[in-house]
Amino acid sequence: MAKTAFLGLGVMGYPMAGHLQAAGHQVTVFNRTATKAREWADQHGGGHAATPREAASGAEFVMACVGNDDDLRSVCLGEDGAFQGMAKGAVFVDHTTVSAAVTRELAQAAKAAGIGYVDAPISGGQAGAENGQLSVMCGGEQADFDRAAPVIDAYAKICRRLGDVGAGQMTKMCNQIAIAGLVQALSESLAFAQKAGLDVEKVVEVISQGAAGSWQMVNRHKTMDAGEFEHGFAIDWMRKDLGICLDAADEVGASLPVTALVDQFYKEVQGMGGGRWDTSALIARLTRQPG
């Protein structure tokens, strides 16, 4: 069992840190809103700290799951940053979806301080975090990954190393690119079924058993048909991720025409007031009037 720190107690980080504590690890948490950290400690029995540096002090592993590039820099760097509290040989594991550029920047800073660095973005949504069933895609030195993987297993369904630092973030981009196209196609299919006067439930029962079937279809068709969009990853965050994907595509010379188009569709849903709706709300632009 390891002494760990967890930085960031959002809808993903809060249950992930809880799984670490439940698995027997010694966990100290940090959150910008201190009351959330105290609430977590009261619920799970771990410790809480006033700064990332204090939380990371003496920890063998420091996990982070925050919002974006700037949030990640703020918990890593500076006098109160986690890197200042971590001892040589400790490993920093970043579960945030961020740009490959900030990953390389922080990995270099960690290396200079004698700290291991694993970029380990996650997929599976809030339900996956709560149930300890996340897919974790990792990049980093093999030795750092080998040490961190048994700790990550507390909340993972699958945890794999894809390559050196940055490979985890690039793999998460593949994940978001695939989801964007899938959800748009599913939205069009369900909206078409509604317009054609078909029973959506019966349609899905049949087509989900064939080549059209997907996790999104099985798990989201009912709420999409009902116009309920409070069940997953918010559009505001998806657009952040798709922006990262499109920037990376320019960097590596990849073409993402469908992703770019779906990003604009998500922008339309934001304009309808749906920024906090989950990603399945793409169907709303086909079935609702703006306003």
Score class of each variant (00 low, 15 high):
A109P: 02
A148E: 03
G81S: 11
S280L: 06
G273M: 10
W277R: 01
D153W: 02
G78E: 04
C65T: 00
L134T: 03
E79T: 14
V269R: 05
A212V: 09
N219L: 13
Q194P: 05
D80A: 15
H48I: 04
G275L: 03
A55C: 13
G128A: 07
K3G: 08
A55P: 04
H95E: 01
R285I: 08
D144Y: 09
A226Q: 10
Y266L: 13
M137F: 10
A112I: 14
G210S: 07
I177Y: 09
G89H: 12
G8L: 04
M137W: 04
V98W: 00
I152E: 01
G85M: 03
Q21W: 04
D80N: 15
Q264N: 13
T35N: 08
R285D: 00
F192C: 12
G47E: 07
D71G: 12
D250N: 09
A23G: 06
M86C: 14
T97D: 02
G168Q: 02
C76R: 01
I177W: 08
L198M: 15
K240R: 06
G116N: 04
G8M: 03
S214K: 03
F92T: 09
D119P: 01
S255C: 13
K202Q: 13
A167L: 14
V200I: 15
L9D: 02
M170D: 03
I283M: 06
S57C: 09
A178S: 14
A148F: 02
Y117A: 07
L190G: 03
M217F: 04
E39V: 12
A154Q: 01
A37D: 08
A167C: 15
L7V: 11
H44E: 07
P150R: 05
I179R: 05
G78F: 04
Y266W: 13
M217V: 05
K111L: 14
A82D: 02
G78H: 03
V218E: 13
G273V: 11
A110L: 11
V269G: 00
